[in-house]
């Protein structure tokens, strides 16, 4: 579904260019998940923004559904760290953003998605009236309301308390099973990567390049956090990351 070939991203040009992403090659098959983890400032967001069509790679190619990515795509949704909600729009308006942008999406309506995420009661509120956890769920609702084939997430649950975070991770796992999208999750949370990524890619310090790929075939159950395989993956990730920093 998503294919990256030797992707390089530089900021600036010439002598003052800063390389943020260095020859990353990665494949995410349809319906599968990949978690990207790496030291802070290594270029994770840059890589994700390139996949979202917001930044053009300096070299290499990014393809989604066998088409070269030229800009933001209708079948791809991006969730930002603070959910990227617009403070001047209500929950309902935020969830329907694509509708306001004049893009039509067939299958899901935002109302159904808000219902599914337990946000129906707050749909007329503004983001400032919501708890942090609710805001992140609205961000997910907004992405989901466009029935995406691909979900790209940049630290979507950063700075939440553990319980809220894990509850939304559980919810997300259910949504993934039900809606069958492919996703790339950028995170600096080792346990989150191990809980949600079928494959976990460990990136090097800047410029980001693939340092290690950890397979995580047993993930997918809500009680996976208590399984020995989960502990093993977490431990491996920790070792890889500590080697990197």
């Amino acid at each position: 579904m998503i294919a990256l070939r030797d992707v390089v991203v530089d900021y600036g040009r010439g002598a003052r260019a800063v390389r943020a992403v260095d020859r990353v090659t990665l494949d995410v098959p349809r319906g599968q998940s990949v978690a990207l983890i790496g030291p802070s400032g290594c270029g994770k967001s840059t890589l994700l923004f390139a996949v979202a069509g917001l930044i053009r790679p300096t070299a290499g190619e990014i393809r989604i559904a066998d088409e070269s990515v030229e800009g933001p795509r209708r079948d791809t949704a991006l969730i930002l760290q603070n959910a990227g909600l617009l403070p001047w729009k209500t929950v309902w308006q935020n969830a329907n953003l694509s509708l306001f942008l004049g893009r039509e999406y067939p299958k899901l309506t935002a109302d159904a998605v808000l219902e599914e995420l337990g946000l129906s009661d707050v749909k007329n509120r503004y983001p400032s009236e919501l708890s942090e956890g609710m805001k992140r769920r609205v961000g997910i609702a907004r992405a989901l309301s466009t029935s995406p084939q691909v979900m790209l997430m940049d630290e979507p649950l950063a700075s939440l308390d553990t319980l809220t975070k894990e509850r939304i991770q559980d919810l997300f796992l259910k949504l993934w099973a039900r809606h069958a999208f492919s996703f790339v999750l950028v995170t600096h949370d080792i346990e989150e990567a191990a809980f949600l990524g079928q494959r976990i890619v460990v990136l090097s310090a800047r410029p980001a390049s693939v340092k290690a790929v950890v397979d995580n075939p047993k993930m997918g159950g809500l009680d996976y956090r208590k399984a020995p395989a989960f502990r093993d993956v977490v431990l491996r990730l920790r070792t890889e990351l500590e080697r990197e920093t």
Partner: peptide, 27 residues
């Protein structure tokens, strides 16, 4: 920048960035 990124990734045109972000943010 986050607000702008967020509408751009949802496919906003130049004018829509003004309509949905720049205008309300500065009101």
């Amino acid at each position: 920048l986050e607000h702008i990124t967020s509408v751009l990734s949802a496919g906003a045109s130049r004018w829509q960035v003004y309509r949905h972000v720049v205008l309300p943010a500065t009101l």
